[in-house]
Amino acid sequence: MDILSFFLETGFWMATLRMATPLILGTLGELICERAGVLNLGIEGIMAAGCMAGWTWVYMGGDLWTGVLFAAFIGALFGLLHALFTVHLGLSQHVTGLGITMLAASLSSFVFRMLLPSATTPPKIVPFQPLAPPLLADIPVLGQILIGQTALTMVALAAVAVVSYVLYRTPAGLAVRMAGENPMAVEAQGLSVFAIRTWAVMAGSALMAVGGAFLTMSAFDAYYIGMVNGRGWICIALVVFASWKPGKALLGCLLFAAFDAIQMRVQQQSGMLIPYQFYLMMPYVFSIIALIVMSRRAAYPKALLIPFRKGER
């Protein structure tokens, strides 16, 4: 069995793209927050909330796309809470973020248990189906990889382009980046740092929640507690790895998911040679290594973690 041969299989690349989707959405969301100068450690909980909210919406008879919107709305609400505390009151972004994670995750579990008290096996919904648009199949390799993906993966890929365009090519994006680098300059332009950061954190949190929703609405068809399983923390590491750039974030997520897909293949092929727990550790180990590798070149947004107060320098 040649380990390298599966790089040529479309199946491998399809799995990579599928596994990268929640990471792409989460990383983009975190990137927007951090570019505006706010570290959002609420990501792990917000992803769990999105995961639960989207699934519940569909389970209660809602439509898939409105379910995604609902998940985004719930994410934005938690983002608003984070922004109120860290932007308007200037509280510690570390501790507030952890508080948001604890609140969002426990509230999701509580609401889920109260809505479905007697569910022993998690009930299922009909998730997003793989797309098969007619023209796509004609594109040689890329088409084959894209054809088996669900709509939310397309949303994630589109989000990379949109976020990159907005951040670098529009006045709003310039304002967000400036709020993260030099908030005084934003204020000097007559813009409100508070408003910009609040909107950025809300938008970022909405994206994270959609990343969570992908898990229950595309990757899988049921919700269970603890489903996000550290993906949020991995996204925070990926933002550093990507040097706060959306394009590099996409690359980082794909690379990361590819490693994950490789380890799964190796795990299947090598049998029980190495215990599976060590394979499961790999994503976390890779994240730490990514942080170490990028540490020398990490160009943090200058105002990250520093609350802005009018009239204070």
């Binding site: 952890l98 426990s106 509580f110």
Partner: peptide, 13 residues
């Protein structure tokens, strides 16, 4: 868990 999380956020404020 919800109550302790709210406690954390409330004590910060």
């Amino acid at each position: 868990d919800v109550t302790t999380a709210v406690c954390l956020l409330a004590v910060l404020v």
